[in-house]
Structures are given as structure tokens and as C-alpha cells.
Design a protein around this nucleic acid. Sequence first.
RNA 1: GCGACCGUAGUGAAACGGUUAUCAUGCCAGUCUGUGGCUCUGGUGAUACGGGUUCGAUUCCCGUCGGUCGCCCCA
Length: 423
Amino acid sequence: MHDVLPVEPIKATWQHAPRWRAVESVFRNICREYGFREIRTPVMEATELFTRSVGEGTDIVSKEMFTFTDKGGRSMTLRPEGTAPALRSYIENSLWTDNPLQKLYYIATIYRYERGHRGRYREHQQTGVEALGSSDPAIDAEIISLAIEFYNRLGISETELRLNSVGCPECRPAYREALLAFAEPLLDQMSEDNQTRFRINPLRMLDSKDPRDKSLLANAPSIAEHLCPDCESHFTSLQTYLNALDVKFTLDSNLVRGFDYYTKTAFEIVSPQLGAENVIGGGGRYDGLIKELGGPATPGIGFGIGTERCLLVLEQLGITLPVASESPTAFIVVLGEKAKPVAVKLLNGLRKAGISSDIDYVGKSLKAQMRQADRAGARFACLLGDNELEKNEIAVKPMNGEGDQKMVPLDTLVEYLRSQDGI
RNA sequence: GCGACCGUAGUGAAACGGUUAUCAUGCCAGUCUGUGGCUCUGGUGAUACGGGUUCGAUUCCCGUCGGUCGCCCCA
């Protein structure tokens, strides 16, 4: 876990709130342009939601959930992923009655109980989208191109999109059998992990990074050869759409993702800028999941993007996204007890007029107040002391060499500041 | 869940087992009796926590907590 600060840390410059806002803002804009609308769901859900959707045999459910019992004796879990909560909400609120196709996006904090290191955190943020109600491969392409466009707008152009089809309940069992038959005689030569996978989740054997496993399984049957006609044509069609959108991809028949609910399309996007944790986004189709969770039989597809990992890539690339200034236009410098109430009232007037402004509340000296105005990046320091009070004026000093200090009548300060360029 | 390494002012870094724990930066004040940035001066502020070894522990050992990096897996 980590803090995201208003000041930029020296070592981890990505833990800086303005950078997060910039990334989120790019994501929101793209989602709006692509016709996705925001959904917000609670950070915690009934544990059963995740055990049923993500799958009992997955690492996430078996060892990575933040689970606890609430005062009513119910088992609750901090969401370890974004899809299941969105679908739960879709079902509970019968969103399909609003429109048979729901295109949703979220920016959510995700929790996974695991050992952290660079790029992997127990608490992290994912931005994601879900399109519910369409089995058209064109929407798979839209979702994928949305993700690619997001990276491009951030300035992350060097990415690799890996694509696969993991089949469906029609064709996967046959493939599974073929794979088991191929692997069984080799089992005692494989890694311990893969021997476990053989029993729990055979497809994951393909994803092993162990060199022994890789060579043993090099000639294993490929899912591509076992797809049913429906999955086959969906996959082919998706590739046609991606080509039409000029989205480059690499077919990877070993790509198996860590959720049990995926059907047909599965993809992930990796960045060469990162080390061990190089996946900056991933997703897939989950045509059986909504029904499984108690809703109508409805196809769906979505992805999640790791905000922290994107920020790490940006840091690696030395990219700083433009952010709106947080500096005030005016900083009121107060001298003496008499001026304070006048200054406070003035400050309120400036703010009501939409002019960002600030003042000291810790009894700083004149010099310190000037320094604070400077460090805050204020465009004008407005000095109010006994001399000014006598004449009902205020001294307005530009901080960036925009001319000389001027005496301005108190009741025209708003007008004066507004008349300055750029305000 | 497994393994390796690391925890010193707010931040970033120093300190053969031995004076008052050093430096930079930040912050406060003075230099400038009513004017920011640049000087110079002063002040502020730290050994994660709990045990142990030792005449003496920031330093060595154990535990807890936290962090970093691998494995696994994922964003």
C-alpha cells in the first residue's frame, strides 16, 4: 500500500496526486467518447460473489482475498477485482431494462492479500470497462482499441497486445481432455506448480514460466485447433476488426488468464518498461458469468488497467502529463490585528467571485507570508496593513515580474484582478 | 504462501562496537524596525518497536511491525 501525496516524493515521483488526476482524467474522457458511463460500487461485497465468479481454484480466491466477518456474521471481502461487483450491480438494478447493451466504466480501488513489490500492491487502483449485452466481436475490438487508445494518449506507445481465445463450455472440455492426455505421461518431469495445475486448472500449465515446463509443453495441443465453429468464427472476426482498426496484436495460444470466468476472447497488454510485473492491462469475454451470478443469460466483455503500473511506466519514460494549476491567483498578506477581519472578508469576496485565493492562518511574519505566496505560486500578493486601511486601499504586487506594485481601492479588487490577463 | 535484502530528523543521505549521532534540503527566525526568489547566521527536528549479547549497541543476535526485490500470481 502507499500514499499519494500533494507533494512529489523524491524517489517515487508517481505517488503524486496531480499525476493520478491526469491519468484518471484521460481515462474518463476516453470512456465518454466511446460511450461508456461510470458505475460506482461498494469496496466490499459478500465473499460469495467472488468465490462464485472468479473461481474457487484461482489464486485470487484461494489466497489473495481480504476477507473478514462482519458483526452480523456475514463473510465480507474487499473487492479483489472490478468485474463481479459491476455485474452484481447490473443484475440487482436490472440495468438491461434501461438498454439491452450497457457500457460501463469504473475507477476502483482493488485489494489483494499478497506480498508486495514494485508494480504489485495489496491496495491498488484499476480503471476498467465492461460492455454487457453484446456478443458481437466488433465490441471486443472496440474494448481493446479503447485500451490501446488510452495508453497512446498517456504517451505509452510501446506496448504489446497478446490475444487468445480460450473457447467456451462447448469446446473447452474436449481441449482440456486433449491437454491432460498429452501432459499426463510428462507429469513427473514437470515442476511442482504444474503438477498442481494439472489437477486444479490444467489450462494454466501452459502459462508456466518454468523452462522445463515450457519445453515439455512446446508441442502440446493448441486451443486454436479445438475451438468450436462459433468460437472459431468469433475469433477470426475479432482479428478482422482489429486489423481494420489498425490495432497490432500477437496471437498467444498459451495465454490463460487467472479468472475462471473467461470465454472466447482473452487478452493482455504488456509494457517493456516494466520488469517482472509488466502487465499493464488485461481482460476478456465472460459470456456465462451474468447468468451464473443470477441474472439473465447475457454476454459480456471487459478489461482492467492498473493505474499504478501505468504511472510507473510514465515515470520510466520520463513523461509528465499536463495538469491544471493548483496555484491561487491571489494571496492576501495581512499586517496587524486591525487588518485581519477586513482581509478575511475580502478573501471571501474573491472566492465568491471565482478567484482562487488564500491567506495565512498560522501567524506568519510579513516575510514568511510573502514566501508562502511565492511558494504557493500565487500570481499576486495583496498586502493589507494600517497604511492601506487608512486609504481604503490594498497593495497588489505581481509576483512574476508583471509590472509594479499598485494601490487598488478595496471595493474594486475583484474587478482589478479580473481585468488582468488570463483571469 | 516461500526466499533475499533493508528500516537514522518531514524528505534524501552519512556514522572501525566507544565524546554532545554528521550533512543536505525543508520548516521557523534574524540579516531587511512593511515586501517573495539569491546570500549569510542561528534555531527546530531522527536511530521503527520489544528483548538479548557487551563495561558500552545506530552498528552484533532474536522476535514483531513496516518497506524493497525475486518466486507464485496478477493490474
